[in-house]
Structure formats: structure tokens, C-alpha cells
Write a protein that binds this DNA or RNA. Sequence first.
DNA 1: AAATAATGTTAAACTAGATTAACTTTTATT
DNA 2: AATAAAAGTTAATCTAGTTTAACATTATTT
Lengths: 197, 197
Amino acid sequence: MIQEKKAQPLLDYIRRFVTLTHEEETIVLSSVKYRKYLKGQYIVQQGDVCKYSSFILSGCTKTFYVDDKGQEHIIMFAIEDWWTSDIGSFITQTSADYNVQCLETTETIQFSYYAQEELLQKVPKLERLFRMMLERAFVASQKRIVRNFSLTAKEQYLHFKEQYPEIEQRIPQYMIASYLGITKEFLSKIKSQLASE
Amino acid sequence: MIQEKKAQPLLDYIRRFVTLTHEEETIVLSSVKYRKYLKGQYIVQQGDVCKYSSFILSGCTKTFYVDDKGQEHIIMFAIEDWWTSDIGSFITQTSADYNVQCLETTETIQFSYYAQEELLQKVPKLERLFRMMLERAFVASQKRIVRNFSLTAKEQYLHFKEQYPEIEQRIPQYMIASYLGITKEFLSKIKSQLASE
DNA sequence: AAATAATGTTAAACTAGATTAACTTTTATT
DNA sequence: AATAAAAGTTAATCTAGTTTAACATTATTT
């Protein structure tokens, strides 16, 4: 059982969506595990089954895909108060398409697939929490598709900077380029263009 | 109250995720409305609040976004047994970013925002249904982002044909080009290349 | 059957962004 | 402080996909 103090950010997060009794909160805390990763370690590896859905207490991760040509494509970043996993692998318990790697020392609270299923039986209110989280995630994902289609690389970069100023500070530029789907050289060009404007 | 016969595809769909009692099924049917749209009509219009989440009994829709330059970008198609709406607008009841237009005469079963909230109170099991639907939708959306980044236009077209052969038949090519994020001219070139291989 | 609108094709000129490669700056390690 | 490794820059060349524009084919309407 995780200490309530450590789990405070998770409880705060949950409260934004549903109201749990103290007893229900206790059940949640008894279903999860605390785990700390070092910089460079993998939470999920392409090919493995994704066993956990992880809530981030501190640190930063990137989720990426290595394609047939060996190219790395960053799908998302995650920082404090975000969730990360390979959901496709997690929900079907089949091998993961993506890697989740820590870019900093990262503290997490983890829900295992089976613990989560059991937890949802015991605290059905959490179905609502997950439903609402997924609604938001899906909407954000759709919006990203639209941006990909309708904005130039420069516009996408400006949008990223505006939407995630904290992430932009913490992460090397070449990873931001990968997230935007452009090369690091081209992002560099965009930045020098912006600087001279 | 919708006739049980008409709602059969919806009930079958729900049964793939959760098991409802007959009484619960009746509550579901009493919360929804049947509505038929003609070809060309809009289920949702950019700027309006999206009032309904629609399950498609027959027909076909496109969801698209018109950008600042007046360009239309198709985000998704939907056919029988799929759901369509502007989820972002639906869940927050704020104005929609997207249009949903019928490409054929389209019969739907619709959940209004308020009816759905009420329904979820009465039949909490449905939270699980929606959670699972959204998991799948989110995974599919993420995969599309990855394909956008890692496949050429030709590869994406082949993937589309393979994954949605029925849709490819029913829809004009220029809309498929829009869905893939390329021009109709370039799709035409790809097709002639493929034909001469 | 003719006319119109919608859809699809071809080809030339163009451009956003990729590739390659050499170089500079910053950060981490000894 | 010196060295190595990681991250970022610049510039020339290249290419996948766009734009423009004219034309061809297929549906739809009268």
C-alpha cells in the first residue's frame, strides 16, 4: 500500500473528475504501486506487453515508435499529473507498438492491468473517471491530426511552444522536431527564421 | 421510445462490451431518438453545439474541418455500426470545430447530451461501454498519427484500402485524398502508378 | 438526348521540407 | 582543464507532394 502522502497528486487528480469516499480512496491506494525510474530507463518497450498504466508524480517521459527504416517518431511527452502507457497494448494485453522512456528521473504510481480490472469492480465510479480521461485524450489526438493537416511546420512549432511551454524548456530540440514530424535541421531553420523576424 | 426492432443493431453493438438486463435495455431505448437524414444534410455544423452522439444504422457520413484558408480536411468517415459526433463539442457543450455531413441517406439513433448523462446515472454499466469505446477510438487515432509520420502517401493509401475496403467503394476519390491529407491530383497519380505496376 | 454538374486525369512548374555533410556550441565525464 | 559526447546550426542539393490549368469521364437533371 502506497503512502497517502505520496499519492496526494493522484487523489487530487481523481477528484477533478469524481468524488470518492475515504474508503474508496483507500481501495484505490491499495491497488497501485509506487515506482521510480532513472533517466534513460524504459517504462514500456516495443514488443513487450504493457503491464501498467502509469500516473507521473515527477519527471518526464517520451513515447516513441521506431519504424521499419529505424527512424524514431515521438508520439507524446508526459510530465507531472499526466498518464502514460501504450494503451493499445494495455487494454488488449498484447505486445506494445511503442516505447515509453524516461527523459528524467521519473516517479510514478502504477495500475497493473489486473489490479485495474479488479479495482473497477470494487469502485465502479472509476469507470467514469477513465471514460472522461479518454474523452479528453481522444479529442486532443484528433486535434493533433487536424493540425498536422492544416498547419505548416512553423505554425505547428509555435502552437507547441504556446501549448506546452514547460515541456519545451525541459526537452532537447531534436525531440520536439521528432514530435512535430520534422527534422531537427528544419526546426533549426524555423527557429532562426523566427529569431530574425 | 424507439422500436426495439429498429434499435437491434445498437443493442447488438452494446452487447459486445457489456451485458444489460432487459430492463436496462428498455431504459436505453427510452433515452434515445431515431432520426433520418438525407444526403447532404448536416448532423453537426462547425460553430453549433453538438447536441447528439449518433449511432449509425445505415448510410455514411464524413466529419470535416474547414480551415482559415477555406480548405476542407476530412477527419473521419462513419458507416453502419459506427458512432459519430464532435466529441469535443459534445462533452463540453461548447461550439463544434467540425462538421458531420451525410454522404448518403443516413439513419441514426441519437443520444442527447442530457439524456446520456441521465442514462449513465440510471445504468452506470454504460460508463464501461463508453470507456471501452473511447479506448479503441483513442488507440486508432494514435495509430493514424503514427502512419502520418512514418508512411508515404502511397503506403497510406494502400493501408486505407486494406483497412476500409467498403468505405473506399462508397466514397468519391477526392474525399479519400482529403482524408489522407493529400491532393486529389496526387492520389490520382498514385493510383495510375499502382495500376502500371 | 442534351446539358450541366460532379468527379477524375495528366502534365508542367513550383515549394516545403528532407537529406547529406561539415561545423559550432553546450553538457557531461575523466 | 581536457576530452568526449550530445545537441544545435548552416548551407547545398534533392524529392515528395502542391499548384495551376486544361482536359476527360461519369452521373444527374431537364
